[in-house]
Design a binder for these strands. Structure first.
Length: 253
DNA sequence: GCGACAG
DNA sequence: ATCTTGTCGC
């Protein structure tokens, strides 16, 4: 395994994505998802990894669980991890998923009553080269409903950061406004969402697993106090604080 | 060769 | 992802 070239590794990974892709569920499967006000939804998870500058292998994996709809912290877990896989665009999941899964498993083992009913993931879901981004990967392996929320546009399947795209962004008037991200095939892979009235730059929402795009969009919007939805923002903030606390010297060299 | 490249 | 201070506005 360690003698594999990056070329062979990528082929291996592509094949794994293709097989897991068949297990993906792109529709609502939960009762709360059908409710106009998400009645029955009480816990939303957020996951993220924070990195140390100039360090390719040490990172902090973070899971938070917030109450819904008040978005108050119910649970958090920070864990230093050693990364095995390199970052290659289109294969982020192979780098990060193992540690996010471990965090979910620790929670399931110790306080199963706090398991999130849906997880917001820092990265794309279906909006991906092969329609199987990090949020899909984590969703299929955990079995939990997942939503992908990316902060930057991934230019895939004919979708590009063109003048047309910029005009569409400019046309978003208020928080909750959105426009579809349509692949060359005609399939809508995700939506660009103006997440709050104050933010100009949209976030890119896509289906991870066991949720429809419309529901994913509505959920993401209702989780936004700022541009980045609160579960992901909290995971990001708290994992950074953890690194500062445990690796204060990591700011040198 | 040039531009893109989630995190 | 990470590097970083100030600045403008409410």
């Amino acid at each position: 395994m360690s003698h594999m070239s990056q070329d062979e590794l990528v082929k291996q990974w592509e094949s794994q994505q293709a097989s897991m892709r068949q297990l993906l569920v792109e529709e609502d499967t939960e009762d709360w998802q059908r409710s106009p006000d998400f009645t029955g939804l009480e816990r939303v998870g957020g996951v993220d990894l924070s990195y140390i500058k100039g360090d390719d292998v040490n990172a902090c994996a973070q899971l938070v669980v917030l109450s819904y709809p008040n978005l108050e912290l119910l649970y958090e877990d920070s864990q230093m991890v050693t990364l095995n896989a390199p970052y290659i665009a289109g294969f982020l999941a192979f780098r990060e998923t193992p540690y996010l899964l471990e965090a979910l498993q620790r929670l399931e083992k110790t306080q199963p009553n706090l398991l999130p009913q849906v997880v917001l993931v820092d990265g794309n879901g279906l909006f991906h080269y092969r329609e199987f981004g990090l949020a899909c990967h984590l969703g299929v392996l955990s079995g939990l409903p997942c939503v992908g929320v990316a902060k930057n546009l991934l230019q895939v399947q004919g979708i590009s950061n063109s003048q047309q795209h910029q005009l569409q962004i400019a046309s978003l008037q208020k928080g909750g406004d959105s426009f579809p991200l349509t692949a060359a095939s005609g399939k809508v892979l995700g939506k660009a969402l103006r997440s709050s009235d104050r933010s100009t730059k949209p976030v890119y929402v896509s289906v991870g697993h066991r949720i429809s795009l419309e529901t994913a969009l509505r959920l993401t919007h209702t989780c936004c106090r700022y541009r980045v939805p609160e579960p992901i923002r909290q995971a990001d903030v708290r994992s950074r604080v953890y690194l500062r606390l445990h690796f204060p010297a990591a700011a040198e060299s």
